[in-house]
Write a protein that binds this DNA or RNA. Structure first.
Lengths: 218, 218
DNA sequence: CAAACATTCTAACAATCGTTAGAATAAAAT
DNA sequence: ATTTTATTCTAACGATTGTTAGAATGTTTG
């Protein structure tokens, strides 16, 4: 007779899995594409052992799966819907938690100075690309770019930006994007490029949201 | 410099709030409509003190709000999106957790015997209502019905079903619904009515999902 | 088959969370 | 004013979770 509560308890495992900052960091990286444990540990700034433990947790909750490739274990999201789940959590948190707003504005504090915070929405980006009026700049690390990116985007990881300026167009607007709304890479890129006189704005979401929306990826 | 992780930690509060069966039970009840603490405690089968503690937790995570009415505190969801969040968690859990399937089929074990498990989807229900070919039966308790229900539904709480059979049509198919996919009330109702020869099926979701889909409610 | 490498497992400990019973608060009814 | 009713707060305790360091496992490479 207690089956209903068992069901809710099992469902709660999914919530529990989403209930720790380190696991959200791991999921954010996995939303860019599959990766081995060590990569995940480094991007989430965890020891390998700890990352592994959190990944087991995510696995038990059905959010990720793993398969062996040589001596590495490659983890990936089980489901595109996990990305949607994260976006939805973000939306709910942003509209209902004051703390959230405070932190977001602090994270992007630098931008407020020079208007770099002006962003491009997904709809706007889609139509800009259709018209051919924008050049897409992916500033994520190369391995994430290789695992999937927006169509016709060029990849210049943030730390190589200065040395690869020649690649960038001067005659079209540039739109920079990265891992998602809380990723600072594209912010940094926009700030630097603006200072150099480029016409550039930031996509207000990231690669995972683009893909989860069913838009084409390469 | 640790602001990004602070942000993820704050976001994780939402996950954490969704990470306990008792809180999911409270949210499921709140998805039917606002309610005072005692009602919430009884439907979730908790002591009032415990329910109150969980509600504080949900409040801090921005999922519910409360306002005083006389000596009662009335709780409600902050956001329709919380219902969507729950549905999405359910979908992800159902497709990726074997345990989930096992529990769902056990919860509805009785149905497998007599084919009562045949359900009506939301689309099917919408078109059935448009054609006027189905009668809607809401088997939730009266207070939940009063707080909102599907258009033109009649309310017969499950425990009064036998005494109110006269209300039910014999010439049209009946569709019974209740709180959601894991609510057993409509299952029970279908089983009883089938035994009495009524033509009746179960809506495979519930009132909250109908409302969250933006369909009209009364 | 031994060594190197990537990951998981184990045990331990601290930190957090859930529950309970009872005290405290706040509004309404007498 | 006092009592009643509804809820929250407090303190305590046990249960669960997160982290670490190091041992164990499994795979590839020499």
């Amino acid at each position: 007779m207690t089956t209903r509560q068992d069901l809710l308890d099992t469902l709660a495992q999914v919530g529990k899995a989403l209930g720790h900052g380190h696991r959200l960091a791991l999921l954010e990286r996995l939303a860019q594409g599959e990766a081995p444990v060590e990569t995940l540990a480094t991007t989430a700034d965890l020891t390998v052992g700890n990352a592994s433990a959190h990944l087991q947790h995510l696995r038990r909750a059905g959010l990720v799966t793993a398969s062996r490739s040589g001596k590495q274990m490659i983890y990936r999201l089980t489901d595109q819907r996990v990305v949607t789940l994260l976006s939805l959590m973000r939306e709910v948190a942003e509209t209902n938690l004051a703390e959230m707003e405070r932190l977001v504005s602090r994270l992007f504090a630098d931008d407020n100075a020079d208007g770099a915070l002006e962003t491009v929405s997904m709809d706007e980006l889609v139509s800009g690309l259709k018209r051919g009026s924008v050049a897409l700049l992916d500033v994520r690390p190369e391995d994430e770019f290789r695992a999937g990116h927006l169509p016709e985007a060029m990849n210049i990881p943030l730390d190589q930006l200065e040395t690869m300026l020649a690649e960038l167009p001067r005659d079209r607007e540039i739109v920079a994007y990265c891992r998602g709304p809380y990723c600072v890479l594209s912010h940094e890129a926009v700030r630097k490029l603006r200072a150099l006189g480029y016409q550039v704005r930031r996509f207000d979401e990231g690669f995972p949201e683009w893909k989860a929306a069913g838009l084409p990826v390469q």
